[in-house]
Amino acid sequence: MNTNSRPTSHPTSGDINAFAITPRNAPSDSVAPGAVLRAEGITKSYVIGGTARKVLDGLDFRVDYGESVFLAGPSGSGKTTLLSILGLLLTADSGELFLRERRVDALSAEERSQVRRDSIGFVFQRFQLIAALSARDNVAIPLTLHGHPLHQARGKAEELLERVGLRDHRLALPGSMSPGQCQRVALARALITEPALILADEPTAALDGVAGRAVMELMRELTTNFATATVVVTHDPRIFPFADRICEMENGGFK
């Protein structure tokens, strides 16, 4: 494995320390801690203009419980493709992928949907909120997919929105909120099921410096509370201090 790790100190946000969450994702004392996600020999090529171009070239990668790993690097280096493969949104040409020690790279589309629903939360660059749903209902969606009644899911969504400072915006539609607020709603949506893994694609790219930092503080705080592992794709060096480890990519591999 060729990953360039840069341990960092974590900034804290003062206004969300009151959360009292029992992490469900942390391995119990009787189980040896391991990787939440492990990828081995991942290869991916795209055919562009009739020519196959290798985007990922035999990558190995792992994220441990509670760890926050950033994927950095120039455009076209394969960060987003890797994130898509890790999130089971894209299939690798070769290689093996394990999520909580379960091999998931050869699952059917239906099974991959189920794995994403159960174990992965997504934070997207452009928030990807449902325009017709209120902030509360956007956050509640993943919980209802787990079979929770809507009123229960809404209740938990409101709690989470309060934690991200959007209690007063719980009934607001995404179109009426600022980008920073939308991203906080998206973060709450990603975390409401307390997934083992959060995958974030350029979470601060559409935000100004202040809002970006606030979102990252919140993400760091909440993922710590939920013991959630995080993989963040970013170009933004201002948020590097929030990483436990930074993996810089270049030409389909790690530097």
């Binding site: 239906e110 949907s113 629903r117 159960d118 939360g121 997504f122 449902i130 997919l145 949506r189």
Partner: peptide, 18 residues
């Protein structure tokens, strides 16, 4: 108009049947 939203729903775990 909502391809992106449907893609999001697929990404967060809704299957075709849903």
């Amino acid at each position: 108009d909502r391809v992106s939203e449907y893609a999001t729903l697929r990404a967060i775990g809704l299957n075709e049947r849903e």
